[in-house]
Simulated scan of single mutants.
Amino acid sequence: MSIDARLQARPSQPDGPATPGLQKLDVGGARDSYFYVPPRYDPVVPAPLVLLLHGAGGHSRHGLDVLQHLADDNGLILIAPASTSHTWDVIANRAYGVDVTMVDQALKHVFAHYAVDPGRLAIGGFSDGASYALTLGLANGDLFTHVIAFSPGFIAPITPRGQPKVFISHGNRDEVLPIEPCSRKIVARLRRAEYEVMYDEFDGGHTIPGEVAQFAVNWFLGRI
Rank of each mutant, 00 (worst) to 15 (best):
A188K: 14
T19H: 11
Y195N: 05
V166G: 07
R223K: 15
L177S: 03
L70G: 08
F111C: 03
A92I: 09
R191W: 00
D142K: 00
L64N: 05
L49M: 12
G222C: 01
G210W: 02
R223Y: 10
A56N: 11
T159V: 13
C182E: 10
A115Y: 05
P48W: 07
G162P: 05
Y34C: 04
H170N: 12
K24T: 15
A193K: 13
Y199P: 02
F150P: 05
R31D: 12
K108P: 08
V110R: 11
G75R: 03
V90G: 07
P48V: 09
S127L: 06
R61I: 15
H62E: 15
I224S: 14
L78M: 03
L138D: 00
D142E: 01
W219A: 02
S83Q: 00
G63D: 12
V110Q: 10
P152M: 10
L107F: 12
S12H: 05
I91R: 07
S12A: 14
Y36F: 10
D89G: 09
V217L: 10
D15A: 14
K108N: 15
P38D: 10
G171E: 10
R173M: 10
L76A: 06
A18R: 03
F126E: 12
I3Y: 12
H59Q: 15
V98Q: 14
L70Q: 14
